[in-house]
Design a protein around this nucleic acid. Structure first.
Lengths: 192, 192
DNA sequence: CATATATATTGCAGTTCGATATAGGTGACG
DNA sequence: CGTCACCTATATCGAACTGCAATATATATG
């Protein structure tokens, strides 16, 4: 989804500044499936404003930097609708964690264990916070998407807990076999 | 993961051309968690070659365009190792599908149903192909990552099948209530 | 026989990322 | 009571990346 449409989506739920849009993608309801940086959000808002898809009100705050609050216009809602009724392009996933587990046999077992445990703890926290949040007042689509994300994270936690010990045993056995003569990673020969 | 490391990872499993690396990210074992375009892969390979992390052999093929086959060097394997033993940065997910379901109440129910059914069919195909593939010969890390992806897709299919009818009923009821006077999307008033 | 698909690379315009600059407020700690 | 780290808030800039077209050839598909 291009950043302009993402901004329209956030603004369709209520007025927000560029900073608040970023937060919605980082910690808020969009954090599980959208990502955008300031370097793309601010230009996107400027373009949307020029196209009259959003209105901008300067808010002089005391004790805070000035804030530009954007509101979606009727044309903006129409543009959001137009962007929603096209078949979605495939998900783009970039996961260093999966990349790392793929090459698990190259990684020292202790380091790998720490990474796996951190991942489980992280997602358990995410799930706990998601289960806490009040959904009954939210629209059907938001509830559905929330449940879908939850199902995904819970499945990942389950799998990791059920399989990580077995993986670590195999990795340890493999590394003991292939490099019994040294404890230094620097002198290893490529065993991949 | 930067594209250079991604290329090193692919090449650690065997020699490949830029085109073949792209295919590994599109259809191959990396397709579930990595993405990169030609425009980033070819420059990355050129840089890796300049840094002596990969070797390049020009292959003049008959009946095909020439091919540059890259092989990872020992320094390349060391660089891959160095990139693997740092804590992975958070996953980056960009999903137009999730974005769409989040705003389900804005979307015509028939269109939404078609999108949901297409998604289920797509992931069922993915799961079927993943279950087909022979894993016993693959390294432990690859098997583990494969299983993790499979668990994720299966959880998503389950959730969609269990909850899509309920969502569509709610959406239909909502749209019938909010716009009983018209069947045209163009004349709707913003009901979000 | 036209059209589409697959192999294989390159270049480019536009988009996005990540870091940095700016600048005051807030809370914690000894 | 200083100061240190972090939060709010916007803007900018180079580096990196994407998506697309161009180029060329061979094989399927209808």
């Amino acid at each position: 989804m291009d950043v302009k449409t993402l901004c329209l989506g956030v603004l369709s739920r209520g007025d927000a500044s560029g900073y608040e849009i970023k937060k919605a993608c980082e910690e808020g309801p969009f954090s599980h499936f959208q990502d955008a940086s300031f370097g793309s959000i601010y230009p996107a808002l400027a373009k949307l404003s020029a196209e009259k898809l959003v209105d901008c009100h300067q808010m002089s705050q005391e004790k805070r930097p000035d804030k530009k609050v954007y509101s979606i216009t009727e044309s903006g809602r129409a543009a959001l609708f137009d962007a929603l009724v096209v078949p979605p392009s495939p998900d783009k996933v970039n996961s260093d964690f999966y990349f790392m587990t793929f090459f698990a046999q190259l990684i020292p077992a202790d380091f790998l264990r720490a990474i796996l445990e951190r991942r489980i703890a992280w997602y358990e926290g995410v799930v706990a916070r998601m289960q806490d949040c009040e959904l009954s007042i939210r629209p059907a689509g938001e509830r559905f998407t929330h449940g879908l994300g939850l199902a995904h994270y819970q499945a990942e936690i389950s799998y990791l807990k059920a399989n990580m010990d077995q993986l670590l045993r195999e990795i340890e056995a493999d590394q003991a076999k292939n490099a019994p003569q040294t404890t230094s990673y620097l002198t290893r020969t490529a065993s991949a």
